[in-house]
Structure formats: structure tokens, C-alpha cells
Design a protein around this nucleic acid. Structure first.
Lengths: 147, 147
DNA sequence: CAATTCGTAATAAACGAAGTTACATGAAGC
DNA sequence: GCTTCATGTAACTTCGTTTATTACGAATTG
């Protein structure tokens, strides 16, 4: 199944932007993420609407973060992306008349709702700053390993 | 994204079969599930391999349950279906060289793994007998409402 | 041997995410 | 103002996955 990887994408983009002084162009971001600049604009556009990043046209233009890394959670980003469906498994029919199917749906919906709640809770606990810190650790670790 | 609804499908089928004395043909099942008999055979075939149902060809043939409803869990069925991907959201690249992406993946993988564990645990607690009981409750409730 | 029913391969249809093309808009700098 | 750089966006294409369909084979019953 084709999975939505936009959350992963924007995180990658935001952390790269956080590492930089100036703005990054869609082209820059697309290169470091192996994708297409238009895809970057499309996705980052959603973050712009939410006030998380700003974009500027023309020379010296590009994207830059306009939010505090410590206050932006992964859950918030998920919501900003339009809360795409989390599960690749679902009910055959959403509003069945069949009582059998209603019983099946109820059981599955319950289980999935619980898992979703846990996931969103966890995503709500992780900030961009946390990821940046983890990146720094990995970076230091690699340098050490190389020495 | 297109969601895999086979778990929902087989549950629906199994409960209908449990309600019946004799075997049900692929045609019967397809009719009550609004799908195609070949799809039924394909999916039920996996359950047959796992010994959960039996099929017979020819007249008076069809499908019947060959397992105890109380011992078959939804998790087991999920596994029987080949453990299809649970999440519709994923990492852009599974084995990235980029340290930024590694940090992103690690965080997301963690959260998703936790949610998956919870979901599988829940599915492991629900048996076909539970669903059948819930169906009976709904059935009784509806009759009452109608009287 | 005819009717029924499963078994299965091969193919098509439907759908959604990501990629691509094309062109418009706006900003910087000469 | 004109050129260049860069975003904004709509339209279309490509790709992968799930489900549906067709076609034919094999087994069982009567």
C-alpha cells in the first residue's frame, strides 16, 4: 500500500531548515529529500497557512521557520497536514444496515480508536526541539565513531 | 489511501456462517457482503490454509467454520491474512543515510510501534465468540425496539 | 454426464499519493 | 523597466495497491 509520508517529509525539511541560517529554497529542500520542488511547495504551503513557516519569493527567497521548535509537536504537524487517515485497515462499509457488520465495525472501531488515541498522544509529546536534539546526539556520535 | 478491508470482510463472513446450520457458498457470502464470489474464495482461502474454515466443492458444497469461535481472536485473523500493513502513514525512506532523517524515522517508528503493539494486543483479546455475543445483543435490542 | 461449486491465474478497474509540466505572480537588482 | 530568481497553483501523469471481473480448470453430487 502506498503510505502517506508527508509527516516524515515535513519533519525532515523543518530540521534541515533549523540547521541553517538563511532560508532554503524549494529546490534545496527537494534535493535533500529526493523529491520535486513542487511537492515541497504543496506540502510546506500547508505549514505556511498554519503560521509555522514563512516563504518569500524572488532572489534570496525561500522557506524559513517562524515558530519555536520547542512548541511545535508532531501531532500539531499531523493536524496541519489535514489529519490524514492513520490506518491502512478499515471497515468494508462505514454505515452498514446489517447487524452482523455493525457488531464487527463496533469492535474494530473501538480497537482502532484506542490505538489512534495513543498514537496521537505520543505525537503530542514530541516537539521539533526533541528531534533536533536527537539529531545532534547522532551527529556527535558519528563524529566520535569516525575519529 | 485505499484501505484493506479484508479483516472486516472475513469477520462479517464468519459471523454469518456461525449463524447458519449448513455451509454457505461463495455466492451466498458475496451477496450478503456486496462483493464478488471470487474475492470471497481468495480471502477465505487464506483462512482455510490456517484451518479456520473448510470448503467443499460441488452441490451442497460451500464454506463452514471448523474452529471454535471462542478461541479465534481478531489478531489471529489479522495474522492469517498475512499481517497487512496497519498504518497508512510512514517514513519517506526506510533506510536513510541522512542523519536528520534517521532521527525523524526513529521518533516516528517508536510512536507507531507503540500504537501497533496496543492495537494487536486489543485484537488479541477479542474472539469471534465475543462478536457473536455482541451481535445477539444487538439483535435482541432491535426486536425489542420494534415491539 | 450434467449441474454445482470451489481453485486460481490473469486482467481490468478504481483509487490515492507522489511526481511532473506549465504557466502565473511577485521580489531583487541592475 | 527588464531580467532573473523563486514561490503559487492548477492540471495532468505515473505508480502502487486493493478490489472486481473474466475465464477456465478440477472435484463432487445425483
Amino acid at each position: 500500500m502506498k503510505r502517506d509520508s508527508r509527516l516524515s517529509s515535513v519533519l525532515h525539511a523543518l530540521l534541515h531548515m533549523a540547521e541553517r541560517e538563511g532560508p532554503m529554497t524549494s529546490e534545496d529542500l527537494a534535493t535533500c529529500m529526493n523529491t520535486h520542488p513542487v511537492v515541497v511547495r504543496r506540502t510546506m504551503g500547508l505549514l505556511r497557512e498554519a503560521g509555522l513557516v514563512r516563504s518569500a519569493r524572488g532572489p534570496q527567497g525561500g522557506w524559513r521557520i517562524s515558530a519555536d521548535l520547542g512548541t511545535v509537536t508532531l501531532r500539531q504537524l499531523h493536524e496541519t497536514l489535514g489529519e490524514p487517515a492513520i490506518f491502512a485497515i478499515g471497515n468494508r462499509q462505514e454505515m452498514p444496515g446489517c447487524l452482523v457488520e455493525q457488531a464487527v465495525n463496533a469492535a474494530l472501531d473501538d480497537a482502532f480508536a484506542e490505538a489512534e488515541a495513543l498514537l496521537l498522544h505520543r505525537l503530542g509529546q514530541i516537539t521539533l526541539a526533541d528531534l533536533a536534539a536527537d539529531f545532534s546526539r547522532r551527529h556527535a556520535g558519528r563524529r566520535e565513531g569516525k575519529t
